[in-house]
Write a protein that binds this DNA or RNA. Structure first.
Lengths: 295, 295
DNA sequence: AAAATAGTGTCTCTGAGACAATATGAT
DNA sequence: ATCATATTGTCTCAGAGACACTATTTT
């Protein structure tokens, strides 16, 4: 096809002479919300340990937000996609490849990075506890897994002309062995007869860098939403697991207790039973399952 | 807080002396998938007209992809968010403000724009047929609303080590009064014991610019997904509408016929009845409803 | 009366919630 | 025998699917 444009150029001629304009361009980064599930120390070895949802944060060693905790991430380089950048970051920080990865949201608020114009394309990754052990081999001394708590704090509904504004505030608490961070994030839904929109805002923030409280909140909301109608939670499980362990993972994600019988019916199609059982648990052994790839 | 970094600078000192590096940065654009629903000409005035899902495209007047059809969009400018850029583009192209807007996905494949490195943050907008009339006032002579058809074409499942690859091909057909475009887009799901990923690919493409077939496919998938568990479809309705009209909109989005009784039960909480009725329809009048803001 | 659509009734089946009962290995 | 968890059974209730019936206006 040799269509000519208004300057009489073919497409290949046009591309040859094309020069990128000198208007300002943003930096583009990826920020990764990397989740895993760990077990706390059990009170007694006969009792089951409780599961904890954890997210990886890195202490900043430079301005801005020096010594605050930030999501792992970095600049997207030429000749790589945002997803490739995310995979690269993930591998650098955790030494783990081949995990569940999902694009979350692209954040572009002006001033979100005090240095310069930075747009961040965020990703969520889920790592199972098998792989987590590999992580010991990374060099970032100032990386830590923070236990996640994300609970509704306040709900508010304000009527406006032709609609309403609903604000849901969540308290985000992140705790590692040494440190406790917290933030309050508000999800605002504006509903008018014509339009509707949802927006995250940081109400308060203690210890997190940039707008990362927002990004983490966004990731948890996504994870909670998807847990109920996909097999996403199975990516947090090791190769073999018991149904009770799986239920604990669902519970720690949803922050809500579930009924055993109903849960087992619900996940029945997501798993396949094996012939293996737990051993020496101090009580009746439990059948081990694996993920069913026939989702 | 006056923490000093390794150069002995405070945060504000650091920011004052900060100079953006001279590494390469991408251009960032927004692309808008703007949907609306229109009615075709009815065969007889006594029969109800059928609904059509339509998307706005603009014929390119310059290289690259000269004379192909593209989604409305443009560069994100400094001091605006991607969302603000989307609102601006939407208003420029359709003269419409205050509509449903949702971020879709950020596309960053290398080479997606043959000119230079361009990352696109895509948005979906839903416009109701009331507002559509305003659109006559826009200047883009080469803009047109294309009727959308998006149907499964082929399904393929390939077993690999530790998992499988499932490919779902869809045929995307876009037709305006004068022109018919078509493309085949494949959604590939790779499931392995550890990871899972979904990816869009353009298999064939006749008449669409850039990777816009992918973006449109992504938008339709999102719209179809959300129709069933949100009130998103109501943003395509005028202020007052009949339940049959609403059902037709659901049907044209899902490309599937629904049962009347079940449909009415399902949307009962999404709408509020009014005291108005249709008139002079050639048959029994129908009660008019409006959107229920108590989602 | 016929055409065309509007609106309602009801039977069945499935799936979630709730709770109870039984099973099994470790101590 | 007791502890602690594993696993299954079943009753109920709510919602979706399927189909049929009645209602109302215009021609």
């Amino acid at each position: 096809m040799d269509l000519l444009d208004k300057d009489g150029l073919t497409e290949s001629e046009f591309l040859k002479q094309y020069k990128a304009g000198d208007y300002e361009r943003p930096s583009v980064t990826t920020d990764m919300v990397i989740f895993t599930v760990t077990e706390d120390e059990a009170d007694s070895y006969r009792k089951l340990p409780e599961k904890e949802l954890r997210v990886l944060l890195i202490r900043r060693g430079a301005h801005p937000f020096l010594s605050k905790w930030a999501l792992p991430g970095g600049f997207v380089r030429p000749n790589e996609t945002t997803e490739q950048a995310a995979v690269r970051e993930l591998c650098e920080e955790t030494g783990v490849e081949d995990v569940y990865l999902e694009q979350l949201y692209t954040f572009s608020d002006i001033g979100r990075d005090p240095r310069t114009w930075v747009i961040s394309c965020s990703y969520m990754a889920l790592i199972n506890s098998d792989k987590l052990e590999l992580k010991a081999g990374d060099d970032a001394a100032d990386a830590a897994w923070f236990k996640v708590s994300y609970r509704p704090l306040r709900e508010q509904k304000e009527l406006i002309v032709d609609g309403y504004i609903k604000t849901l505030e969540y308290e985000l608490k992140l705790s590692s062995e040494e440190e406790e961070l917290s933030a309050v994030v508000a999800r605002t839904m504006t509903a008018k007869t014509t339009s509707t929109g949802t927006d995250y805002e940081i109400v308060s923030n203690d210890g997190l860098a940039f707008d990362h409280a927002k990004i983490i909140a966004c990731a948890i909301d996504r994870l909670r939403g998807k847990v109920n109608y996909t097999d996403i939670a199975l990516h947090l499980m090791p190769k073999l697991f018991t149904l009770t362990e799986l239920q604990q993972v669902y519970e720690v994600i949803m922050d809500k207790e579930l009924l055993k019988a109903a849960f087992r019916r619900k996940v029945a199609d997501l798993v396949v039973e094996t012939d293996h059982y737990t051993e020496n648990a101090g009580h009746r052994p439990s059948r081990l399952y694996r993920r069913n790839l026939e989702g």
